[in-house]
Design a protein around this nucleic acid. Structure first.
Lengths: 212, 212
DNA sequence: TAGATTGTTAATCGATTAACAATC
DNA sequence: TAGATTGTTAATCGATTAACAATC
């Protein structure tokens, strides 16, 4: 399975996975790309092509074995081996993320939070929150590669630089700012603003259409 | 400004806006697409084309008047007139979103939260949390058009249906599920799983490259 | 005028879609 | 065999990029 996969495909995979997992055990053992496409409101061909990238378990006439397909997608996405991560900025959002159980489904494990001035030394769920001074030692000793950034926009760049100094290779950025990073570091922006823009423009059009 | 804008452009606009706003008052009055592009690590041509979609204030040799450009983007994105929204699912994430100040920058105002079994009757910041039974009356009387969905995945579809019955036209979905909606309703998925997928695959590759 | 910067028109690139052949 | 479904090859579509003309 040594093909290069496009980001578009990659972003659709979690959708398939979530749907497949949501099916009850009583559901048929096999599922076709067509069925999946209809359920998710997508084109048949696209689903089939996407699945072909990560699995070769598709059999004409019957489709894919559900369990096998789930495993194939999970393996591709790396859900099977968990990634440890640290979170920087243990405010409301940061704590919400640390508390969220669902990440384990995708192989993410937030070990600890860090903050300039921790308001408490652990979350309600018992995850530790440390002062940032301890970040480097923590990351180095545990070989952490992923950092989650939930600090205010004005501190985002310096927090980002710090993470990189600590050996982090991938940053999940919740701050609404552009981050300047070296080439080999990946920043994935979880930018609320972009989603809001889409919604907002849609609503404006909707309102205008109603009037006009 | 009656052009049809692509979603790709739309999603880049908030980035420009955030950067422009982050500049201090002492910064030069004019800014060129080239400068913007370099600052955000993008192509010059793309920035120029994007800006041309929302503003005609660009002057050869000098660039855009910063303030004017900010206004133009804001007007396009509808940041100038606030959108009222309700939030359904007042758990950790829901409360974090209700508390977040930054949305007002983009014209979003979360009026109230709703929950099946509210753990409290307002957030720390003083925003009300009501039982879901009151959702319809609340939305109808205030003509709310936007709903934010922060319920667990298994309740997402029913909560979504409820929002639509209440007259909501646009849904910001934080639940990791596909939602089935009528044609005229817009669902914008703030899907953490897709971002995670991108990060995860990048890290896997990184690790493999180091070994190999 | 010369140079910087804009906006436009054409070329490239990649993703999606459509048509078809292969297979159980 | 016939039909459903897969995977592949070609066509379309749209976004990005490159080249250029226009303007201050």
């Amino acid at each position: 399975m040594e093909k290069k996969i496009s980001k578009f495909v990659l972003k659709r995979l979690p959708g398939y996975l979530a749907y497949l997992k949501s099916l009850p055990d009583t559901a048929p053992e096999h599922i076709s790309a067509t069925t999946l496409a209809n359920a998710l409101g997508m084109g048949q061909v696209q689903v089939r092509k996407d699945l072909a990238m990560v699995s070769d378990g598709g059999r004409p006439k019957v489709g894919y074995r559900r369990k096998e397909l789930i495993e194939d997608i999970e393996q591709f996405l790396g859900c099977d081996n968990t990634t440890d991560a640290v979170l920087i900025g243990a405010g409301k959002l940061g704590q919400a993320l640390m508390a969220y159980q669902g990440f384990s489904e995708y192989g993410l494990n937030i070990l600890a939070g860090f903050d300039i001035a921790p308001a408490m030394d652990m979350t309600e769920e018992g995850k530790p929150i440390y002062p940032v001074e301890q970040l480097e030692e923590y990351c180095r000793s545990r070989k952490i590669l992923m950092g989650i950034l939930t600090v205010p926009a004005e501190h985002a760049q310096s927090a980002c630089d710090l993470l990189i100094r600590c050996g982090i290779k991938a940053i999940w950025n919740f701050a609404p700012t552009h981050l300047e990073v070296p080439e080999h570091i990946l920043v994935q922006n979880q930018n609320m603003a972009t989603s809001l823009a889409v919604l907002s423009v849609h609503l404006q059009k909707q309102i205008k259409d109603e009037k006009g």
